[in-house]
Amino acid sequence: KLPPGWEKRMSRSSGRVYYFNHITNASQWERPSGNSSSG
Rank of each mutant, 00 (worst) to 15 (best):
Y19H: 00
R16L: 07
W29G: 02
S14M: 07
S27I: 15
G15Q: 06
H22K: 14
G39A: 13
W6V: 01
T24P: 01
T24D: 05
V17N: 04
H22D: 03
K1Q: 14
V17M: 08
M10P: 03
S37R: 09
K8P: 08
K8W: 07
G39D: 11
S11A: 10
P4H: 10
S33E: 12
S11E: 12
R12Q: 12
S27N: 04
K8S: 07
P4Y: 12
K8L: 14
N21I: 02
H22G: 05
A26H: 14
W29F: 08
W29M: 06
W29A: 05
P3W: 03
G5K: 01
R31Y: 13
G15A: 05
Q28M: 05
I23Q: 08
L2I: 05
S36Y: 07
K1P: 15
S11L: 13
I23L: 11
E7A: 06
S27E: 05
H22T: 15
S11D: 15
S11C: 15
G39W: 07
S36F: 10
N25I: 04
N21Q: 02
R16E: 05
H22E: 05
S37L: 12
S27K: 13
Q28C: 11
G34A: 14
P32T: 01
E30S: 06
S38R: 08
R16D: 03
S38T: 12
R9G: 02
E30P: 04
T24I: 04
G34S: 13
S13P: 10
H22F: 14
P32K: 01
S14E: 07
Q28K: 04
N25T: 06
V17P: 08
V17D: 03
S33D: 13
S38L: 11
A26I: 14
M10T: 14
S33F: 10
R9T: 03
I23T: 07
K1F: 12
Y18T: 01
K8N: 01
W6S: 00
G5P: 08
L2A: 02
M10V: 15
G5Q: 04
W29N: 04
N21T: 01
E7G: 04
P4V: 08
A26Q: 15
G5V: 02
W29Y: 10
S36G: 13
F20E: 00
G34Y: 14
N35H: 11
Y19W: 06
P4R: 07
Q28W: 04
T24G: 02
Y19S: 00
G15H: 06
N25L: 13
F20R: 03
Y18E: 01
S37I: 11
S36A: 13
S13Q: 10
F20G: 00
V17H: 07
T24A: 03
G34K: 09
L2V: 04
N25F: 10
R31F: 14
S27G: 05
W29T: 05
P32W: 02
G39E: 12
R12F: 08
S37H: 10
H22R: 14
N21R: 01
L2D: 15
S33Q: 13
S27D: 02
G15M: 05
Y18H: 01
R31L: 09
Y19N: 00
V17F: 09
E7F: 06
S13K: 15
S33Y: 10
R31W: 10
S33T: 15
N21H: 04
W6N: 00
S38Q: 10
W6D: 01
E7R: 06
Y19P: 01
H22A: 10
S27P: 03
N21P: 00
N21E: 01
S38H: 10
E7S: 09
P4S: 07
R31S: 07
L2Q: 02
W29Q: 04
P4M: 09
S37P: 12
E30W: 09
M10F: 15
E30Q: 09
S33W: 10
P4W: 11
Q28Y: 04
I23G: 04
R16S: 04
R16G: 03
W6T: 00
S13N: 10
Y19R: 00
F20D: 00
T24Y: 04
W6P: 00
M10I: 15
F20V: 05
R12S: 11
I23M: 08
S13M: 09
Y18V: 02
G39F: 08
P3T: 02
P4T: 08
Q28V: 04
P3R: 02
N35P: 14
P32L: 02
R12I: 13
L2F: 03
S14R: 07
S13V: 14
K1W: 14
S38P: 12
S14V: 06
E30A: 08
P3A: 04
S14A: 07
G34Q: 11
V17K: 03
P4F: 13
W6G: 00
Y19T: 00
W29E: 04
Y19I: 00
M10K: 13
Q28N: 03
W6Y: 02
V17W: 13
G34T: 11
I23Y: 11
G5H: 08
T24H: 03
H22C: 15
W29I: 06
A26Y: 08
K8V: 15
S37A: 13
G39T: 11
S11T: 10
F20M: 02
K8F: 06
R12Y: 10
S13W: 08
H22I: 15
E30C: 12
S11G: 06
A26E: 14
L2W: 03
W6K: 00
Y18D: 00
A26M: 14
L2G: 02
V17S: 06
R9N: 01
N25Y: 09
M10D: 03
G34I: 13
T24V: 03
F20W: 09
S27F: 15
S36W: 08
T24F: 05
G5F: 07
E30F: 06
R31E: 09
N25G: 15
G15P: 02
R12L: 14
R31M: 10
A26N: 08
R16Y: 05
V17L: 06
G34H: 13
N35A: 12
W6E: 00
S27Q: 08
F20Q: 01
F20C: 06
W29V: 05
Y19A: 00
S14Y: 07
G34N: 12
N35T: 13
P4N: 08
N35E: 13
N21W: 01
K1M: 11
K1H: 13
S37Y: 08
P3C: 07
S13Y: 12
E30K: 06
N35L: 13
K8H: 05
P3G: 05
I23V: 10
R12G: 09
G15E: 04
P4L: 08
S13A: 12
S37C: 11
P3K: 02
S37K: 09
S27V: 15
R16I: 06
G5D: 04
F20A: 01
Q28P: 00
N25Q: 14
M10A: 07
G39I: 11
K8M: 15
R16H: 05
P32I: 01
L2K: 14
S14H: 09
N25K: 15
S14C: 13
N25H: 14
A26V: 15
M10Q: 09
G34M: 14
Q28L: 03
Y19L: 00
S38A: 11
V17I: 13
Q28H: 04
W6F: 01
H22S: 12
S38G: 11
N21S: 04
N25W: 08
S36V: 13
G5A: 04
G39R: 08
S13G: 11
G39H: 10
S33N: 12
N21L: 03
Y18M: 01
S37T: 11
S33V: 14
S33R: 09
M10L: 14
Y18L: 02
Y18W: 06
S36E: 14
Y18N: 00
V17Y: 11
P3M: 03
F20S: 01
P4D: 09
Y18C: 08
S27W: 15
R12W: 08
S14L: 09
F20H: 07
V17R: 04
S36M: 12
E7N: 04
K1L: 13
W6M: 00
S11W: 07
S13C: 15
G5N: 06
K1Y: 11
P32Q: 01
S37N: 12
S27T: 13
N35V: 12
R12H: 11
S27L: 15
Q28E: 03
N25D: 04
Y19D: 00
R16W: 05
R9P: 00
